[in-house]
Lab assay of single mutants.
Amino acid sequence: MSIQHFRVALIPFFAAFCLPVFAHPETLVKVKDAEDQLGARVGYIELDLNSGKILESFRPEERFPMMSTFKVLLCGAVLSRVDAGQEQLGRRIHYSQNDLVEYSPVTEKHLTDGMTVRELCSAAITMSDNTAANLLLTTIGGPKELTAFLHNMGDHVTRLDRWEPELNEAIPNDERDTTMPAAMATTLRKLLTGELLTLASRQQLIDWMEADKVAGPLLRSALPAGWFIADKSGAGERGSRGIIAALGPDGKPSRIVVIYTTGSQATMDERNRQIAEIGASLIKHW
C-alpha cells in the first residue's frame, strides 16, 4: 500500500482519535458579512469528516447552483462504474471539434489522439474542462443518470439537468442544476469515506481534487503551510461562485467545507476574496 493510499485508508482512524471539535460562531459572522459585502445569498456548511456531524452552517438547506462543483460527483459516478466493471479508466475516447464547448483548455489539445477516461476526469476536476465533463456525462448516460446515481446514494436534493455550459445559467428560483450545502457536503463525505467506492477509487477521487489547479484564489489562499486540501470550485452566471473541499491540518483532511453564493453584482475577484476570507476565519478558529 502506498503512503497516499495509507493516508486515505486511515482518515477515519486518525479522526477518531482527534480531540473533540467545537464550532466557532466567528466564522458564521464572516459568512454573514460576506453576504453584506456581496449583496447576495451565501450558503455555508462545515462537517466533521469522521462523524458527519454538522459543526457550523448557514442557509444549509437553500438551493444554490452547483456550477462546476458537480464534476466531482460526476467522476465519482464514473469511478463507481469502474468498480462495477462497467468502465475502464484506460479506455480512450475520441471526439471532434464539434464536441468542444466553451472553456476546454485540455480537451482542445487532444482532438487528434483523444483522451482516456482517467485523463478526462483529471481534466474535468483539476482544470474544470467543460468538454471533458460533457464527454464523461455521455459515458454514464447524461445528466439524468448522474441525478439517479445521487438518488441511489441517498441524495434526493442534488440534481443535474443540463450539460456544460448551460448548467451554469443560475436563474433565480430555478431548481435545475442545483444542490443544497448540506446535501453536497453529505454526498461528498460519502464519496470520500464511505463504502460506495473502493479504496482505490476513493484515493483516485481525492487525488484529482488535491491536484486542483484553478481554485488557488479561494480556500487555498488562506491555508497555512502543512495543511491538506482537496477541492473543486465552480463559477456561473449572475454572480455565482462555489467551492467544495476536504481539508485539515497535519497533512490530512478532517472536515468537509461547502460554500456557495449566487445573485451578486460583485466582480469575480471580490467573490473570490470573500470566500478566501471565510476560509481564513475557519482556519483561525479551527
Rank of each mutant, 00 (worst) to 15 (best):
M1H: 01
I3T: 10
I3C: 10
Q4G: 08
H5C: 09
A9F: 12
A9I: 12
A9C: 11
L10P: 08
A15T: 15
P20F: 03
V21A: 15
F22K: 09
A23Y: 04
A23P: 07
T27L: 08
V29C: 12
K32Y: 09
L38F: 08
L38G: 07
G39V: 10
A40H: 04
V42R: 00
G43E: 00
I45R: 03
D48N: 07
D48S: 08
N50R: 12
S51P: 03
K53I: 14
S57W: 11
F58T: 08
R59T: 02
E61H: 15
E62Y: 08
E62T: 11
F64H: 01
M66A: 07
M67A: 15
S68L: 00
T69D: 00
F70N: 05
L73F: 08
L73E: 03
C75N: 02
G76I: 05
V78A: 06
V78W: 03
R81E: 07
V82A: 10
A84C: 11
A84L: 13
L89V: 06
L89M: 11
R91G: 05
N98M: 11
D99P: 05
D99F: 07
D99R: 08
V101C: 10
S104Y: 03
T107E: 01
E108Y: 08
G114I: 02
V117D: 00
S122F: 13
S122D: 15
S122M: 15
T126F: 03
S128A: 00
D129A: 00
A132S: 08
L135Q: 07
L135A: 06
G141M: 06
G142R: 04
G142I: 01
P143M: 04
T147M: 07
T147N: 11
M153Q: 09
M153C: 15
G154S: 08
H156G: 15
T158D: 01
E164F: 00
E175W: 13
E175D: 14
E175C: 12
R176E: 07
A183T: 12
M184L: 07
T186R: 14
T193F: 11
G194E: 12
S201G: 10
R202I: 07
I206D: 04
E210T: 10
D212G: 07
V214Y: 05
P217Q: 13
L218Q: 03
L218N: 03
L219N: 03
S221L: 10
A222N: 14
I229Y: 04
I229R: 01
K232N: 01
K232C: 01
S233H: 01
G234T: 00
G236V: 02
R238P: 09
I243Q: 03
A245M: 04
A246P: 00
G248E: 01
G251R: 10
G251V: 07
K252A: 13
K252T: 11
V257P: 00
Y260K: 00
S264W: 04
T267F: 07
T267G: 13
D269V: 13
D269K: 12
R271H: 07
R271W: 03
N272C: 04
N272A: 05
R273Q: 10
A276T: 10
E277C: 08
S281N: 12
S281T: 14
H285Q: 10
